[in-house]
């Protein structure tokens, strides 16, 4: 209204853009978080295609016939414990305890590797039974979604191995702390996605 009166120093426009400096000291963590959010979109679109195609069995096996809930319970427990164990590794990092940190990281990595081996075994078993990704739209969507998550876990394991070597050789320095904070977010994020996978793809898929 009366902002034009005595408007020698215009202050209003500063409300519309960032007047503070972005957090430069941990800009990598913000950037990595934004990457994880973009990864959310990948998984969201794969969840959508499963939601749309999930009952198009094309005369092939249904979810209730091929999805193994006992194996799923083991996989879910492995990934959840792995996530918590990675958290303990980050707490050891806060205390600058390199030995404990490497130990926790190794446990987290082994749990994830067992998770992956169970997933690969399940996939091979399904393909051998003629329920591969080429059988029906339901199975295409299933393999794409669960396989993409598995690929992420595989890359996470490779990344973990690289960072464990870095940590063993160069210790807990600033660069390694930053990298491990990123991997920690990645690791917890994959467990979060798995909550959606086991709830919607498996548990709901068995009921449909």
């Amino acid at each position: 209204m009366n902002t034009t009166v005595a408007n020698t120093v215009p202050t209003a426009p500063t409300d519309f853009y960032c007047v503070q400096e972005p957090p430069a000291h941990n800009g990598t963590l913000v950037g990595f978080w934004i990457y994880l959010m973009s990864d959310c979109f990948i998984f969201a679109s794969l969840f959508v295609s499963y939601a749309v195609l999930g009952t198009n069995y094309a005369g092939g096996p249904t979810g209730a016939e091929i999805l193994d809930l006992n194996g799923l319970a083991v996989s879910t427990a492995l990934l959840l414990v792995s996530s918590v164990v990675f958290g303990f590794a980050m707490l050891a990092m806060q205390k600058r305890n390199k030995g404990a940190m490497l130990g926790w990281l190794a446990v987290a990595g082994i749990l994830a590797a067992v998770f992956l081996s169970l997933e690969v075994r399940e996939f091979l078993h399904m393909i051998a039974e003629g329920a591969g990704p080429d059988r029906s739209a339901f199975l295409s969507a299933f393999f794409t979604l669960v396989g993409t998550h598995g690929l992420h876990v595989t890359v996470g394991c490779l990344w973990l191995i690289v960072l464990m070597v870095q940590l063993a050789r160069f210790g807990i320095n600033d660069a390694n702390v930053r990298r491990l904070q990123c991997l920690s977010m990645f690791w917890h994020f994959l467990d979060l996605i798995w909550v959606g996978v086991f709830s919607y793809v498996y548990l709901v898929g068995v009921l449909l």
Binding site: Q20, P22, P23, N26, L29, V30, W33, I34, M37
Partner: peptide, 8 residues
Amino acid sequence: EGGWNMMA
């Protein structure tokens, strides 16, 4: 991270 993570 100064609220940026929450915003994203």
